[in-house]
């Protein structure tokens, strides 16, 4: 059994390195993006093999899925904007490729062997988390929201900043193509896509809610649930099943910022109840964290969707308002 796992692991590592090289070395950008997505999927499998399902979920959803979509979207915009012909791959001698692949597999096998001989790394936070009975059964959620709350707070702030930067980068009156010409308004209009997206909405909400609730004592949580919800949102927006919300609406801005606001509120509650920000008072730690995770799920979904879909065209304000 061990021999089989070793073969699988070595194959996995070799394929991951090859996918990474193909993504970096390819002259055709589309090909590079495709290999980047493959690389993300393989990385998720590696995390799974390392018994880190939380990281695997995040890698598959954000690393391969959403980042891939962002890159493909960018590529589509660049090509639409400039009508550049994709660069053709220079043909190489197959012997070089085969030799390179062999060398890589050998190097991966050597790396795997070295990794197995090495001593186990120091445990880090693990013994502390395992030895401290906290409100969260899932050690990953405990670290994210109980032990290392500041890190997560800053991550949410960075996500919001990225959205704000994206919004600021669109000059007023120059709409993003994805936001103004959704798929179903183009020639792709078809009943199947609309049906699929409508069918996906309840399932996506169910899965996101499940991941959020499950995050308390098993792999899951706000980031994974939020990404699932974001995927459904993005599909609904680009297929025009729902209209794009204007960034000027208070609801839109609130949906984007509510994660950071909720986090700050929880920090304030900690400061008031036990004298330290983000130190959850013991009597309400679990409901507080669960509620925070619920709000974070929604906010992360809104932010990720805003990053991918872009900002819709906002018509210039009416002059009567500008005068004020």
């Amino acid at each position: 059994m061990d021999a089989i796992s070793l073969v699988v692991d070595v194959l996995l590592v070799g394929m991951t390195v090859l996918a990474a090289l193909a993504a970096v070395a390819s002259r055709d950008v589309f090909r590079a993006v495709a290999f980047f997505i493959v690389f993300g999927a393989l990385m998720a499998l590696i995390w799974l093999r390392l018994s880190a399902p939380d990281v695997a979920l995040a890698e598959a959803a954000v690393g391969a899925g959403l980042t891939g979509v962002l890159m493909l979207e960018t590529l589509g915009r660049i090509r639409r904007a400039s009508d550049v012909e994709p660069v053709r791959e220079r043909p190489r001698h197959p012997a070089f490729a085969a030799a390179g692949a062999l060398a890589l597999v050998g190097a991966s096998a050597a790396a795997a062997a070295v990794a197995m001989v090495l001593e186990r790394a120091p445990e880090g936070l693990a013994p502390l988390v395992a030895g401290t009975p906290g409100p969260m059964e899932n050690p990953v959620t405990a670290v994210l929201l109980d032990f290392r709350g500041y890190d997560t707070l800053l991550e949410i702030a960075v996500l919001l900043l990225a959205v704000i930067a994206t919004m600021a980068l669109y000059p007023r009156g120059r709409p993003s193509p994805a936001a103004t010409t959704p798929l179903t308004r183009g020639p792709e209009r078809g009943m199947l896509l609309g049906w699929f997206v409508r069918m996906l909405l309840p399932v996506g909400i169910l899965v996101a809610g499940y991941l959020w609730w499950q995050g308390a004592d098993a792999p899951g949580g706000a980031f994974q649930g939020g990404t699932v919800l974001a995927a459904v949102l993005i599909l609904m927006l680009v297929t025009a099943v729902v209209e794009l919300p204007s960034p000027r609406w208070l609801v839109t801005r609130l949906a984007l910022a509510v994660g950071l606001l909720a986090f700050l509120a929880v920090a304030a509650i900690g400061l008031w109840a036990s004298g330290a920000p983000l130190d959850h008072p013991s009597f309400a730690a679990k409901p507080l964290i669960l509620a925070l995770e619920a709000v974070l799920t929604l906010a992360i979904a809104a932010c990720l969707a805003a990053l991918v879909v872009g900002v819709p065209h906002v018509p210039p304000r009416r002059p009567s308002r500008d005068g004020a």
């Binding site: 020639p187 792709e188 078809g190 199947l192 896509l193 699929f196 069918m199 996906l200 399932v203």
Partner: peptide, 24 residues
Amino acid sequence: ILIWGLALAASATIAHLVANLAQR
């Protein structure tokens, strides 16, 4: 079984989109 159903629906939809685009 839910995963299987989702993959089935997604694959049918994507095949339709790709074939549609290829035809156009």
